[in-house]
Amino acid sequence: MAFEPRIVGFLCNWCSYTGADLAGTSRVKYPFNVRIIRVMCSARIDPTFILKALSDGADGVLVCGCHPGDCHYVEGNYKAMRRYALLKKTLRSLGVEEDRVRLEWVSASEGVRFGEVIADMTEKIRKLGPNRIKAELILDKAER
C-alpha cells in the first residue's frame, strides 16, 4: 500500500478555516491527507500541539493563519510567526525534517490557494516518507 501522509492542520477560525471552507464551497479538489483542527487564532497554537501531533504519528503539521496584517485578533499571526521561528530551530535540533512542519498564511478568500498548499505539502511529505517518531519510540522500547 502506497504511503499516504497524514497531515494535521491547525487553522485559525477567521481566515484559514474560512479559506478551507471556501475551498469546499468552491469545490476545489485537494488531497484528503489533511485533517483539520480549528483554533480561534494561529496564536492559540501552542508548540505543544505540534509536538503532540508529531509524536502521535502525524507525518506533517500545517499551521495556517491570516496573512500578516489581516489577523482578526490584530497581531495573533505575528505571535504564531515568532513561535514558529523558534520552534523550527528547536525541531531542527531534534532532527525533525524541515518540511514536516509548515506555517502558511491563508486568507478567507484563498480557497484555491489552500488546496494548493495542501497538495504541495502532501507531495513534499510523500517524498519525505513517513514520520518515524512514533515508530522509533516504539522501537526504542522494544530494543531496550
Partner: peptide, 30 residues
Amino acid sequence: AKLLSAVSSVIDSKDPKEIERILAGIPDFV
C-alpha cells in the same frame, strides 16, 4: 515547548528577518 512559546512570545518584532536575528542570540535553545 511551553518555554519556547513564552520566550518567543516576548520577542519584539514583526519582521521575520529581525526575529531570526533576535533568536540567533539563543545559541542552543533545545
